[in-house]
């Protein structure tokens, strides 16, 4: 019979309503929460950048937030190819034109 009584307190279920919330003893806490959320800054977040100069601009363009992309990798590859080829040309290739001659 205890089982039946336990069931009868469960049914019908207590549905959360405005009356319950405002009349409940923890209404003050809910007001605090509402107040806290009202204090939070609204709208889109301001754009900040903790790096200045050309590196900072590069970072803002290719790394930050929505701008994050794989382009820095391509830039790196391009820079290394240019650097490596010019070094290779300076040190080796100009010494044997037209592919002739052993090193």
């Amino acid at each position: 019979m205890i089982f039946k009584r336990a069931l009868s307190t469960l049914i019908p279920p207590k549905v959360v309503s405005v009356k319950h919330l405002t009349a409940a003893p923890n209404a003050k806490r809910i007001n605090n929460v509402v107040g806290f959320y009202k204090l939070l800054p609204q709208g889109p977040a301001p754009k900040i950048n903790n790096l200045s100069g050309p590196l900072g601009r590069y970072k803002a363009k290719y790394y930050d937030g929505e701008n994050a992309s794989g382009k820095p990798l391509l830039h790196l590859i391009g820079a290394i190819v240019v650097l490596g080829y010019s070094m290779e040309y300076y040190f080796h290739l100009r010494h044997h034109k037209n592919g002739e001659g052993e090193h």
């Binding site: 290779e88 080796h92 290739l93 044997h96 034109k97 037209n98 592919g99 001659g101 052993e102 090193h103």
Partner: peptide, 9 residues
Amino acid sequence: NLINTFINS
């Protein structure tokens, strides 16, 4: 000359 753009050794 493609060969010249390539590393020789």
